[in-house]
């Protein structure tokens, strides 16, 4: 694994950098944390390159933080870089939750621990609720979007329908509802997107990175 890519970044350096980020990105918002390190501190990418990686990482399935790690690792140091970055991202948190899990198995019968865990669980619900609402504010722009939200929520959340049939039916309908109608509209949309990304990049340069929802 002596592949050396852009900026002299090797899989080894990627591994240690992502191991550090994987070990210190507490409390969600991993994506903003990655941007801060990769763009501002290490200078391995510029903002546009990071946003391009984030776009891909959000579009394909999987955890966004590990997807971004794979894409950035691959851009900078090939296959070895992708593997090194993903392992670095995953290992510290997995070890820590492993320790928490063992402690949990031993201590959960203790009523004091049980009461504290009740607080932790209730707070975790508040956390996903807040993230869902933040993303929802951006994702739901028309009445049809609200219907799509309901069409995903009710079968999966209430009736326990498997995600496979739900996605097979709903995803084509949802994507079709946003089908490119004519070239003018598509061009307009692209211009808006470009302006949005330019603004976002400028904001990132000026202010400390905002917490990007959905973190991991």
């Amino acid at each position: 694994m002596s592949h050396e890519g852009e900026n002299g970044v090797t899989p080894g350096r990627l591994f240690w950098a992502f191991l550090y980020m994987g070990a210190t990105s507490f409390g969600g918002g991993v994506v903003a944390y990655l941007r801060d390190h990769l763009v501002s501190r290490l200078n391995w990418l510029d903002d546009d390159e990071f946003i391009a990686a984030l776009e891909i990482g959000e579009t394909v399935p999987g955890l966004i933080s590990t997807n971004v790690a794979v894409i950035v690792g691959s851009r900078l140091a090939g296959v070895g870089g992708a593997i090194a970055a993903a392992l670095g991202m995953i290992i510290p948190g997995a070890l820590m939750i492993f320790v928490l899990g063992v402690l949990y198995a031993h201590l959960r019968a203790n009523p004091d621990v049980g009461a504290a865990l009740a607080g932790v669980g209730a707070a975790a619900v508040g956390l996903i609720l807040a993230v869902s609402l933040q993303i929802g504010r951006r994702a739901v722009q028309r009445l049809a979007d609200l219907l799509i939200v309901a069409a995903a929520f009710v079968p999966v959340g209430i009736w326990h329908v498997s995600l496979v049939p739900m996605l097979v039916v709903l995803a084509p309908i949802a994507i079709w509802s946003y089908r490119p109608t004519d070239r003018v509209a598509a061009a307009e949309y692209h211009a808006k997107q470009a302006a949005f990304h330019a603004r976002r990049a400028a904001q990132h340069r000026e202010a400390p990175p905002e917490r990007i929802e959905g973190g991991a």
Binding site: G22, S65, I90, G93, M96, I97, V120, A124, A216
Partner: peptide
């Protein structure tokens, strides 16, 4: 819920 206390992917 405990997993939200660990760093990295949630």
């Amino acid at each position: 819920s405990l997993g939200q206390l660990a760093p990295g992917p949630n």
